[in-house]
Design a protein around this nucleic acid. Structure first.
Lengths: 174, 174
DNA sequence: CCGTTGCGTTAGTCACACTAACGATGTACG
DNA sequence: CGTACATCGTTAGTGTGACTAACGCAACGG
């Protein structure tokens, strides 16, 4: 009783997603992430921010100033991409980038007063956005979800730290 | 007692992710999805498949043959991208693409014998990959997770069907 | 002194989601 | 019956995110 083609319900298949796909966690994750990312990006764009901005500002606030490389490690943003993010933040006077006198390779990034003021504002925006994201879930369920995700994330960040490159495997056709 | 900079634990910040970020569901989702996607893509690549292949084959198996547009709707793959996916599947003789005599705009896509044989193989591969993906969770927890994700997905697919374009909002700088 | 390692930066790759526009066809309606 | 509109398959292109490669420079370590 899986297919619904020969029966009396005329189903050209236009209807909806196959069962095999609907319950596939990897698929649920990527679909939901697509929605989530869109929601967050749009919301942050409305206040002229991006999620990387928040990540960097939060990191500076919690751990204090640091080099770009350190920031990269804290936030998970690649150091190649960090350059641009810091440019954007500096343009907006949310951080200051000054050369480290003790190690002339480094820049030291500091959160500015303006950046410090910005952070709670972004907290609020994100909070509201997550309210929309998690709308159908009760507080307890939201908690469950973040705990489950947290555990998975822990597991996978331990076993596969970034830099573990994606393999390109056997291509038969083409 | 939030920051750990002035105390006795020398924390250049290289350590780890700020708390604000770690518990952010949207962030957990995208990070986990990155890992998940990598895992799945690599796993499928090893058997010369991609997730879209699976999606299309599963859809054909469950709902029977259909036009490319119908397949798009079932799988969530955009019809612009469906072209390429079907090319790949046809190259591998997993589907057949024949013009619909009743509607000359349409192609009718049918799963081939080979495709039908392929599907359980992919089921197995995906099953194993999900075992790795969800490794730290008990069966009950895995179930919880998929139910929570399912509900969120339901909610957001109802309220924001694809085609709801991402807004590009006020850019002050640049 | 020299090799390695870390830093900031530039440039480029690949996949994904999505838009725009096209020509050919089908459908509805006045 | 004709014409406006919708749908189909297809091509091309956009923006973002994650990531690699390579660079020149500076620091560290033997």
């Amino acid at each position: 009783m899986i297919t619904a083609e020969a029966a009396d319900m005329p189903d050209d298949g236009t209807s909806r997603t196959p069962d095999r796909l609907r319950r596939l966690p990897s698929r649920q994750l990527s679909q939901l992430t697509t929605r989530s990312d869109r929601l967050i990006n749009e919301g942050l764009a409305r206040v002229d921010a991006r999620k990387w901005h928040y990540a960097v500002l939060a990191s500076l606030q919690e751990y204090g100033p640091g080099s770009q490389a350190a920031l990269s490690r804290r936030t998970g943003i690649y150091r190649s991409d960090m350059v641009g993010v810091l440019n954007e933040l500096a343009e907006r006077d949310l951080v200051e980038r000054v050369p480290d006198p003790d190690d002339r390779r480094r820049n030291i990034i500091t959160i500015s007063a303006r950046g410090r003021r910005r952070l709670p504002r972004l907290d609020k925006v994100l909070d509201d956005l997550h309210d929309e994201l998690l709308a159908p879930l009760s507080p307890a369920e939201r908690d469950q979800l973040t705990r489950l995700l947290g555990r998975l994330l822990d597991y996978h960040t331990r076993t596969a730290p970034p830099g573990t490159a994606p393999r390109r495997a056997g291509e038969t056709g083409e």
